[in-house]
Nucleic acid binder design. Sequence first.
DNA 1: GATGAAATCCCTGTAAT
DNA 2: ATTACAGGGATTTCATC
Lengths: 156, 156
Amino acid sequence: MSKRLASIAPVALDDTDRALLAALAQDARQPVSELARVVGLSAPSTAERVRRLEAQGVIERFTVQIDPRALGFTLQAIVRVKPLPGQLHLVEEVIRRIPEFVECDKVTGDDCFICRLYLHSIEQLDEILSKVTERAETSTAIVKSTPVARRLPPLG
Amino acid sequence: MSKRLASIAPVALDDTDRALLAALAQDARQPVSELARVVGLSAPSTAERVRRLEAQGVIERFTVQIDPRALGFTLQAIVRVKPLPGQLHLVEEVIRRIPEFVECDKVTGDDCFICRLYLHSIEQLDEILSKVTERAETSTAIVKSTPVARRLPPLG
DNA sequence: GATGAAATCCCTGTAAT
DNA sequence: ATTACAGGGATTTCATC
């Protein structure tokens, strides 16, 4: 089943949509009745809006945000990965298979991949990167703090 | 305003917790009754588990995942930012204030910040980075694809 | 054509086993 | 942890603007 392509024209949001998305970003499990109260609409209209935003593809999904530290992932690293000649696809596959790589983007420029890693310890960093370093050069940065945690893009 | 520290000992999850988190990651708005069916427990027990995971800090929040492309953000960039001497705090503040920076980590190493930007066009990249380049050196990579979209860390 | 209102149905939370 | 029960929320239909 192919994902729906984003329409050529971006979806235009009104103030109500923006308030709705902000409220859902804060707590996606709150009841429609509560959302309705927040945005100042009736419950059916509010439910209809949410459905429309899903159908338009603005809402990809409702999900849960996990705190990795609570699970013992005390360390976070951002690794730039530059595959050796001919190893690009294999490297991508290796990254995809290692669950500690929680995010990976393929980018322009010298470093082909930029990835985020969750780790239990500094020793584990070596352990995991060793599966990649045979096939790529890596450059690692340890996360010290997160001035901006993943947030919504501007909705205006 | 200090956030709760992760407990010294990481939270131990059992198979039911793992199934629950996976189901919630897929659709955080599904009713407890449905979750109960999925994990093979009664509804009250399931609701209790969800509450416990929240109280333990494993679940940070329930949120909504927006597709930036549906809103016209056709471009995504990852920018490394190295503030000039004495400009570190100001640079951090500038980044925090620009909503197109949807994510920013402070890291070890030569580049102080690694940020993710959502953009409507390549022209907007210049426009936004110009607010930073007076106070920092930047290095920009355009995202071509995302082999691993933000996923849950290993729960085992 | 979309919003608000009412009725039915289902879900959630509580208490007791 | 489950079952039963009481209360509240969600969805559908209908009427309205």
